[in-house]
Amino acid sequence: MYPAKFDYLAPETLEEALSILHERGDEVKILAGGQSLIPMMKLRFASPPTLMDINRLPGLSRINRTNGTLEFDALVRHNDVVKSDAAKANHTVSRAAPWVADPIVRNLGTVAGSLAHHDPEGDWASVMLATGAELVLTSSDSQRTVKIDDFLVDMFTTNCLPNEMVTKVRVPAHSSRGGGDYQKLERKVGDYATVGVATSLELDEGGRVAKAGIALTSVFHHNLKVPEAEAALEGERPSDELFAEAANIASQVCDPASDVRGSAEYKRHVVDVFTRRGLAKSYETAKGGLT
């Protein structure tokens, strides 16, 4: 590959990395897995003056499960999630992980990096929107926690400041009456989604939907949470008809573009089908926790 010239920095500690961002954040791109950034540099769609490689930073590769929360450090790779038992605490997360890219990309690409990149064709942002995740953003002088809905601004745009780095991603664990799924249509392994649908359900003791999450990939100019469809589910007793109603709403709200992956009509149709299937699968898991 023949990218434009760039400076390369490889700090050894988080403090050092944050101080580099503090000094020259505007011109720095963070290199984590590089699975989106490097191809963009290869095609010269991106020509950052400086690359800061954070792969040498210690202690940033853990997946922790504490008090109903699943927490991913900045350098957790997609494949770490695939292999993790702890990650099974959130069904949407664990079912989505094997659908991310291909095995080679999964070995290097990171969850946090994917979210910070915010390609609307990326899978993780939909998963996080459906499950109500939050991110920890750290700079040399402060740390803040941001809800995923606020973090994602528009395609390739987040509210992460130039001096900040995503250091943690936190996802609520599902309860025993919770379930989740990720349905993805892709042309081949490693392709971006033609359509992706993340779903999450929590049932109350009586078996009604206490909380629902639905978010869509590749069918809007950013990953799209569908509160209208979630609202249609919440408080209701799950049924095929109910899921079909929510799916129909999702298919109306999305706004896909026609391209080589398919026509807008087709993608809208797949949103309908996959939302229905995803909710049914999520419910399948959740109802196992009903006594």
Binding site: L43, V189, G190, D191, V260
Partner: peptide
Amino acid sequence: CIGSNFMDYLIPTAWE
């Protein structure tokens, strides 16, 4: 040209 790299010009893997 749509299909100017292996993200757009698809080569099946062992999976497909």
